[in-house]
């Protein structure tokens, strides 16, 4: 299994490169993953999306779709693509320490 080294600690990743254990996640780790994904700074709208994703996942066992993000996280589609370029749902899930979303939308 692939791992990533953060602050001297090896963190396990799944086949998609997302965290294998959700409990390993913390805000510093999120910043680290974001930096690797080409997002140098996580601003408050970034955190709004990340926290919303984590809340939905906690309740439902899958990350929300782009449509739900748009409707319920308070961040619209255009902004989502600006915050998380090249695939907001997947990238935000990765930064939020969640598996790749399963849905098509």
């Amino acid at each position: 299994m692939e791992t990533m080294n953060i602050a001297g600690k090896a963190i396990e990743l799944d086949a998609d490169g997302h965290l294998a254990n959700r409990n390993d996640w913390n805000e510093n780790l999120a910043r680290e993953i974001a930096a690797q994904e080409g997002i140098p700074e996580l601003t408050s709208p970034h955190w709004a999306v990340i926290n919303f994703m984590r809340t939905v996942f906690e309740k439902e066992g899958d990350a929300p779709s782009i449509r739900r993000l748009t409707k319920e996280s308070g961040v619209d589609t255009k902004t989502l693509y600006q915050l998380f370029p090249k695939g907001p749902a997947k990238r935000a899930a990765k930064i939020a320490g969640l598996p790749k979303p399963k849905g098509c939308i």
């Binding site: 779709s65 449509r67 589609t77 849905g103 098509c104 939308i105």
Partner: peptide, 18 residues
């Protein structure tokens, strides 16, 4: 039910997505 929007909303969403 599977969270696919009606056509009008979908077109807006896709356009907003770039």
């Amino acid at each position: 039910k599977i969270d696919i929007p009606p056509i009008g909303e979908f077109i807006t969403m896709i356009h907003d997505a770039g």
